[in-house]
Design a binder for these strands. Sequence first.
DNA 1: AAAAATCTTGTCAACTTGTTCAAATCTGCT
DNA 2: AGCAGATTTGAACAAGTTGACAAGATTTTT
Lengths: 240, 240
Amino acid sequence: MSPRARTARTKEDQGHEAAGQAPRAGDLTRTKILHSAEDLFGEHGFDGVSVRQIALAAGVPVALVNYHFGGKEGLYRAIFEMRSPAIVDDRLAGLRLAELEPNPDRKLELIIRALIVPMIHLRNTEKNSSYARILARETSSPSRHSKEIIGEFFDPVARKVTEAMMQALPDRRPEEIHWAYHTMIGAMVFIMADTGRINRLSDGTCDPDDEMSTATHLVALLHAALKHGRVPEPPRKGNL
Amino acid sequence: MSPRARTARTKEDQGHEAAGQAPRAGDLTRTKILHSAEDLFGEHGFDGVSVRQIALAAGVPVALVNYHFGGKEGLYRAIFEMRSPAIVDDRLAGLRLAELEPNPDRKLELIIRALIVPMIHLRNTEKNSSYARILARETSSPSRHSKEIIGEFFDPVARKVTEAMMQALPDRRPEEIHWAYHTMIGAMVFIMADTGRINRLSDGTCDPDDEMSTATHLVALLHAALKHGRVPEPPRKGNL
DNA sequence: AAAAATCTTGTCAACTTGTTCAAATCTGCT
DNA sequence: AGCAGATTTGAACAAGTTGACAAGATTTTT
């Protein structure tokens, strides 16, 4: 069979890349495939791309994909293993920063920024823009496979964010916090999906490529939503 | 060839179903296929389902799909032609209602409701829940095909909504209106996608199946976002 | 230098994909 | 009853799918 297949040593490759710990021969091929896959998956989705197209784009024989990643699913997972840590770590760092802020209003904004800015930044970093699209697709897909991947890679940090929100907004019911959180994720993910609709409908006034402007607007809107968006009635049953 | 292929007479079938105007023989088959397709496309996306799976679920031979809809794409389009008018009309009706409201604050809320409530309602109407998922997928997909379909069926009403928003919030720059609009769409579409993540992360406290509660929370949050979410600085270039 | 592990390559088989075809059946109309 | 058009059917098609293999090339270790 294959000596080291599956999604084995991806952490070493990306995680501590600086300390050159035995870069093997196949690593160049790995990253070539990984990048092509990222682009194509981002554009057409998991089912919309064949391994052959990826291999062709990467300029390698098809068999190499199976050798290095143990199949199409393994390749897909490898993309998440490569990219996710960066966002998650950035978010956690942002949350730690928010904890230090005494002013409750500023604190709330910092939490929102911790959630949003890493992703916006990711999207606008040349090489990673496709991953943002992949993430957008996956986040809003109801399939079992998507749930597993998102759950594994992003649920932990999601819980941290909601906890921080509860602390920053102590007068809200958990229900309100969670709806607010998913409103934020939805808005963010939609803009990250990059359908071009924003540019189209705004006649070019709004441009997601403008990292600064996008973040400013999105944070302002979501900050207002969280700060002033109280739900009037406590949730008694049978109200119509 | 096929006498009447393509996506011909879908309006007659669904639109004015009451007045029985010549229900042809194949109409039952058509709707069987249409419904199965809706479910499967909603669950796995366009590329995630094969025509054979759809035919199998509908209990008809594969060839009938091509006969009635002229191919897979035609079938997909037919779903939009069947479902879209209902939402679009509901939204337009909601917008007309909002125009009559004198109180600017209430007016803004009515506009938001006009955009959101029809879709939430659609999602929670037994038969149509899958279409909401299809719509969510398609709205946040960057592929050319998705752009075309969404553009054709939903851009017109989108422009009406943004126009109404500009009237209700005359002190905002167009830029702000458009970011706000896409924030709304994103939040809504994400919740409609129905990934189960909301239930999971909130430990069941939030349930998108509860139409009333979902609408209340979402409208409250977005209303606050639009009302208080001003962007501080005018967009001068080169700000860092 | 020899041996062992790793990496690359072209090809293959088993299977699924969307679509088409000719023949059969059903339908309503004169 | 008979006919024309609409509908249904099962089979077939060409093209593309994934994953696997053995054999060769390369690198690393002994």
